[in-house]
């Protein structure tokens, strides 16, 4: 009893839209929603306030001696980025899927002619857009304050910092979406996101410190452990982009410079890229098999 013999099984021409078109449509909705969300506004304001604070204070400190131009401002901004951007991206990503699932929206969306991969990529793209807007707005405002205060930083530095912050944000968004695909409840997902933030920002670094002191870790292990943390990869890359060197990071930094020379930026890039791609792929695979309700 083959399907083709039955009148009801005649293939009816179907014209679902292409993948790119769907992704863009879904991304647009996600972006629109994110830019209007209150939490996002709060993050943006926090980032802006901290960044402006650092810019103002550091410019006032070294600026009064005419010592601008030695990049301490950048170190302060790197610190702020490390603190705020991962939190923002992780929680945003974590609520992306789980929130929709919990409110039953996912059901209606997936009943439309869209594939689940398109939904994941569309959300990722849309939220990336929102994060990019937040980062560029924050660092753009910082640049203006620094220019007003006396140009303590090279424009090139700010552009590098913004680009690398975006990569960091994408990696954390990706991890957040993996959490979101796994979690049943939005609150659990966001909680896990915050926990991961704590882990990546504080716990792993403190662990590495303890390990280095207790186990006398050789510089090589120390460097690779640190490199595997996307936040640290971002930090090292940012320093490298400014000074063309990470020798400011002491013996382990010098080891990396001496051993890997020009491949270092590629290594930082690989670490961040892996943190962007792998969790997103995992999120897509899990989302494919999970029920939308």
């Amino acid at each position: 009893m083959s399907a083709a013999t039955l009148p009801s099984s005649d293939v009816i021409p179907a014209h679902a839209p292409g993948m790119i078109s769907n992704i863009l449509t879904l991304a647009w909705r996600e972006l629109r929603d994110a830019l209007r969300a209150r939490s996002f506004l709060l993050y943006s304001l926090a980032f802006l306030a901290l960044g402006l604070g650092v810019s103002y204070v550091s410019a006032a400190g070294t600026g009064s001696l005419g010592l601008s131009g030695f990049g301490r401002t950048t170190a302060g901004l790197i610190n702020i980025v490390l603190l705020v951007v991962p939190l923002m991206a992780l929680t945003t990503g974590a609520s992306a899927i789980a929130g929709d699932r919990e409110r039953g929206m996912l059901l209606f969306l997936l009943a439309q002619p869209v594939s689940r991969l398109e939904v994941v990529l569309g959300k990722f793209l849309g939220l990336s857009g929102a994060l990019i807007a937040c980062i560029t707005l924050g660092l753009g405002a910082c640049s203006l304050v620094l220019a007003w205060q006396g140009g303590a930083t090279e424009p090139r530095t700010m552009l590098w910092l913004a680009s690398l912050s975006v990569l960091l944000a994408l990696s954390m968004l990706s991890v957040g979406m993996l959490v979101s695909a796994l979690a049943r409840k939005a609150s659990v997902a966001v909680g896990t996101g915050v926990f991961l933030w704590l882990a990546l920002v504080f716990v792993t670094d403190l662990g590495i410190m303890a390990g280095t002191l207790a186990l006398r870790l050789p510089v090589r292990s120390l460097f690779f452990l640190t490199l595997s943390n996307p936040l640290q990869a971002f930090k090292m890359w940012a320093l490298h982009s400014i000074d063309a060197s990470i020798d400011v990071l002491g013996p382990a930094g010098l080891y990396a410079m001496d051993t890997y020379h020009d491949t270092l930026p590629w290594m930082f890039g690989t670490s961040l890229a892996a943190w962007i791609v792998l969790p997103l792929v995992a999120a897509a695979l899990i989302f494919r098999t999970r029920s939308p309700v």
Binding site: V11, I12, D33, R36, G104, L107, F108
Partner: peptide
């Protein structure tokens, strides 16, 4: 099969033949 298309394998095209109304519209109400 919907319109001759396997829902499990070709869901996107199958769904493009369907208009679906849920029990209650839960959608981005903003």
């Amino acid at each position: 099969r919907v319109g001759g298309r396997d829902v499990a394998r070709d869901g996107k095209r199958a769904r493009s033949l369907i208009g679906y109304v849920p029990q209650e519209l839960a959608f981005y109400d903003d």
